[in-house]
């Protein structure tokens, strides 16, 4: 292993930097944009929900987005595998690289030094979070979900709410723990991406002067703030959803898609 890493040192280092942006960072942006639609989707009028409350319209928008991704996006498996390979590569190499450093923020408590330290910490914790997140909500490891609700793209909002709440009936204590883990996980990962984007520009030699590094810093901070907002919207939006309400909206959508009248949808849903 070390000799392979030695021989391909430059290539591996730069691939490590690149994979953090493409595909992982690009996916992060798309993922958070979709998930936060559970809130902002309420403002994007969707046919059939014109009179419904803002919250319901958000759930409907989110469900339609998720269903679209899972049914209409071509080569979904290929995209997922690419993401997984990239993530595994970025994480394994990241840990290997991070081990070469020794934090000294106690003696040199400069802002840049703190970001250096948090970058490594967020890498470790972020990877744990991603693993839990994907294992439970994508691979269906329901034994890791309090309440055991399996996530399904056909019931994306309701099953997500149940997984976060820890039950289908409301927030439980374990649900609070899971939600806090999500809060920490997404926040750290957004930081990791924004800060990584800033340092990548130095690594590749795009930003050289102090002024250029500062300007690019503003761009990365702006992007980070926007992503952070989206991440929190996604989480709090899903937490605010009641499982049963979401289930009703999702069923309405299924029947709408199947060409059934909303009335019939409600009847069908009670079965």
């Amino acid at each position: 292993m070390p000799s392979f890493i030695e021989k391909n040192h430059f290539l591996l280092r730069r691939l490590h930097s690149l994979t953090g942006i493409v595909p992982i960072g690009v996916f992060l942006i798309a993922h958070l944009l979709t998930n936060s639609s559970i809130i902002w989707g309420g403002g994007a009028l969707r046919e059939g929900f014109d009179g419904a409350p803002f919250k319901d319209r958000g759930v409907a928008y989110f469900q339609e987005e998720v269903a679209w991704i899972n049914t209409q996006v071509p080569h979904l498996l290929l995209i997922e595998v690419t993401l997984w390979v990239s993530l595994a590569f970025h994480a394994i190499l990241g840990v290997y690289y991070a081990r070469s450093g020794s934090a000294n923020t106690d003696r040199y408590p400069y802002q840049g030094n703190w970001r250096y330290r948090v970058q490594r910490l967020s890498g470790y914790l972020g990877f744990l979070f991603i693993f839990y997140h994907v294992a439970t909500l994508r691979w269906g490891w329901t034994f890791l979900i309090p309440g055991g609700t399996e996530w399904s793209f056909r019931y994306s909002a309701s099953t997500l709410a149940a997984a976060l709440h820890g039950s289908t009936t409301g927030l439980t204590t374990v649900g609070v723990v899971v939600s806090l883990f999500y809060f920490a996980g997404v926040s750290l990962l957004v930081f990791h991406f924004a800060n990584g984007l800033w340092t990548a520009a130095i690594t590749w030699g795009l930003t050289i002067s102090k002024a250029a590094q500062r300007r690019w810093g503003y761009v990365c901070a702006g992007l980070g703030a926007a992503l952070m907002l989206m991440a929190w919207m996604s989480l709090f939006g899903a937490l605010a959803v009641k499982h049963d309400d979401a289930r009703r909206i999702e069923s309405q959508l299924h029947h709408k898609a199947a060409g059934l009248a909303p009335k019939a949808a409600e009847i069908a849903d009670t079965n």
Partner: peptide, 18 residues
Amino acid sequence: MGEGGVNDCGNAQNCVQV
């Protein structure tokens, strides 16, 4: 370019401070 070179810098930027 090789091991121990510029790619091993972690951009903590303590160097410039001190």
